[in-house]
């Protein structure tokens, strides 16, 4: 089990990946055997615009230390305009997270195409490192949900 003391801190990271670009990019990094930390667990969504900011808050509440949303590059959305919605929503969410005092680096939006397996791996590597540096998420975590 992951130990949440500051020495052996292993962050819990939820990654929302759109089915058409980023999930395929994640598959590609697997096919190319490009390693990234086990902390990252992927949730498949049809489009990055399916990610309700509520899901992100829920993840933080349930004890996630970082949340990353990956979508197609702007202009390449399978659904024409979905990732533009995502971009706006996440920008708004940032200001809310700022208000709540959640470090901005805990949430990230990245564009990863189906051809960018290497980028996917390096983004995940980098993001995990960033979150590790920030330490455990304590501000929004609901202690009732914490695993004993």
């Amino acid at each position: 089990m992951q130990v949440n003391d500051s020495k052996n801190f292993e962050p819990v990271i939820a990654a929302f990946c759109c089915n058409w670009c980023s999930y395929a990019g994640a598959d590609l990094s697997g096919t190319n055997r490009l390693s990234y930390p086990t902390n990252v667990k992927i949730i498949r969504v049809p489009c990055s615009c399916r990610v309700n900011p509520m899901f992100i808050l829920r993840a933080f509440q349930r004890g996630a230390d970082g949340v990353i949303i990956c979508g197609c590059h702007p202009g390449d959305c399978h659904y024409t305009s979905g990732n533009y919605f995502t971009r706006r929503r996440i920008t708004l969410l940032y200001s809310m997270l700022d208000f709540l005092g959640i470090e901005r680096n805990r949430t990230r939006l990245e564009w990863v195409s189906a051809a960018e397996g290497a980028k996917f791996a390096s983004v995940m590597e980098q993001f995990t490192e960033d979150v590790r540096k920030l330490g455990p998420n304590r501000r929004l975590e609901d202690l009732r949900c914490r695993k004993k």
Partner: peptide
């Protein structure tokens, strides 16, 4: 197939 409750359940399972 990707309902709010389903994705929430996935989030919960990952963060548990």
């Amino acid at each position: 197939g990707f309902s709010n409750s389903q994705i929430m359940a996935e989030v919960d399972a990952i963060c548990k």
